[in-house]
Computed example of a mutant assay.
Amino acid sequence: MWARLVALIAKEFLAVWKDRRSRAVIIGPPLIQLLIFGYAATFDVNHVATAIYDEDGGLAARDLIARFEGSPSFEIVARLTREAEIRQVIDPKRAILVIHVGQTFSRDLLARRPARVQLIVDGRESNTALIILGYASRIVADFNSDWLKAHGEIAPPAHLVVRSWFNPNLESRWFIVPGIVALLTLVVTMVVTALTVAREREVGTFEQLLVTPFRPFEILIGKAVPALVIGLAEGTVIIAVGVFWFGVPLRGDLPLLYAGLFLYILAVIGIGLMISSVCRTQQQAILGAFLFVVPAVILSGFATPIANMPPLIQDLTLVNPMRYFLIIVRGTFLEGLSAGLVLERLWPMAVIAAVSLSGAAWLFRHRLQ
C-alpha cells in the first residue's frame, strides 16, 4: 500500500507541475498578491490633499497651519481666498480636507476666549474621513497644549497619554501582512485541491485511475498530501517575506504557528476535495472554490471585526477555519500568543478538518460507485 501511495503522490506532484494553469496559480500570483496587499492594503492615510482657507493671517493661525504643513499625513494643495472656493476643491476631490481659520482666531486666543477652527472633510469615504479627522484633531490638541504652556495659562486638569500594545506605531501593515498568510494559503490550497479530481475527469485519466489497484481512501490520501505540502511551502514563503521583507515582528513560537497552519490546511483540503468530488470540469471546480473562498474571507475577521457582525452571522463564522487560524497567525506575530490560547483555536480547526475530510471521503466513495 505504501509503495502505491508514494507512486500516486509522485504522480500528483507531476500532474500539478506539468499543468500550466496549476503551476501558474502556485508560483506567480501568491507572490504578486503578497507584495500588492503588503504595500497597497493599508488603513493608514498619508499625504491627505488639504486646502487652507486662512481668514485670520495672525501669528497663532500661521503656527497652527505650519503644523499641518510639517505633518507627513497632510499635503497642502491649495490656498483659498474666499468661501466659494471650498466647494470648488471638495467636489472634484482636489482636496479631501479644508482647514478654515476664522477672522478672529488669533484675537480670540490672545483675549483668552475660545477660538474656533473649522475642519471640512469629504465624507464620501466615511472610514477615510474618520481617520483624517483623528489626525487633524491630534494636531489641534497639540497646538492647544503648546499654546497653554507658552502663555502661562492653566493647563487642562487631565493629560491623556496613549500607548498602543503590540503595535506601538499603529502600522496597519503589521495587521495586514499576517492576515495575508491565512488568505493566500487558503486561495492556493483551495484551488489546487479543487482542481485535482476535476482535472482528471476533464482530460479523461480519472477512469484509468479507477481500474488501478488503488482503493478510494488511497486515492484520497494521494491527492491530499501534495496539496498539504504545497500549502505548507506557500505558507512558509509568505511568513518569511512578512518577516524579512516587510519587517513584521514574529514574537511567538514557530512550532505553534505551524501546528495551526497544518490543521488549517487540512481543513481547507477537506473542503477542496468535497468541491472537487462533485465537479466534472475545472471550470466548475474554480467556481466552487470561488464560492467558498469569498465568504470565508469575509466571515474570518480579515478586514472587519466579527464582533460587529449580526449574531446569526457570528454563528456562521464558527465553521470557518480561517477565523481560527487568523487569530493564531496574528497573535503569534504580534503578541507571542501562549500555547493555551493557541490550543483553544487548534481543536475547532481539528474538528472542521475531521468533518470535511470525512465528508470528502464519503463523496469520493459515492462518486466512484
Rank of each mutant, 00 (worst) to 15 (best):
F37S: 04
L35F: 15
T128V: 12
G252Q: 02
R23Q: 12
L337A: 00
V294D: 04
I298C: 01
A15Y: 07
D63M: 10
I99V: 14
V278F: 10
N320G: 12
V351W: 02
G272P: 06
P114D: 11
G179D: 09
L318G: 07
M349S: 05
A194T: 12
I221C: 09
R280N: 14
P305F: 01
Q88F: 04
D44K: 08
L357K: 01
A285M: 03
F68N: 11
S126M: 10
F292V: 15
Y53K: 01
S172W: 08
Y135V: 00
G102V: 04
L228N: 05
F206D: 07
V243N: 09
L250A: 08
F43M: 15
G152R: 11
P168E: 10
A40V: 15
M322Q: 01
G301N: 02
E55Q: 15
V229T: 09
L343K: 13
L31D: 01
F214K: 02
M274F: 12
W347Q: 06
T317S: 15
G260A: 02
R94M: 07
V203P: 01
E202M: 04
R163I: 09
R62L: 14
T304Y: 15
F302P: 00
R251D: 09
L250T: 07
E218S: 02
Q208H: 10
T128F: 02
K223N: 10
I328V: 14
A296D: 03
V225F: 10
V177L: 13
I9S: 09
D44H: 05
V140R: 07
F217N: 08
V197E: 11
R124S: 13
T189V: 13
F262P: 06
L59K: 14
I269K: 00
Q118E: 13
R94L: 14
P305D: 00
G270S: 06
A49W: 11
L35C: 11
G70K: 14
R107I: 08
V203C: 07
L80I: 14
T317M: 04
V243H: 15
L170Y: 10
A155F: 13
W165C: 03
I139D: 06
G359N: 01
E202G: 02
Y324F: 12
S300L: 03
W245A: 02
L160G: 03
I132G: 04
L341C: 01
A353G: 05
P255G: 07
R4H: 08
V211Y: 11
A95S: 12
A115V: 07
V342Q: 00
D56F: 05
A24F: 15
L273S: 03
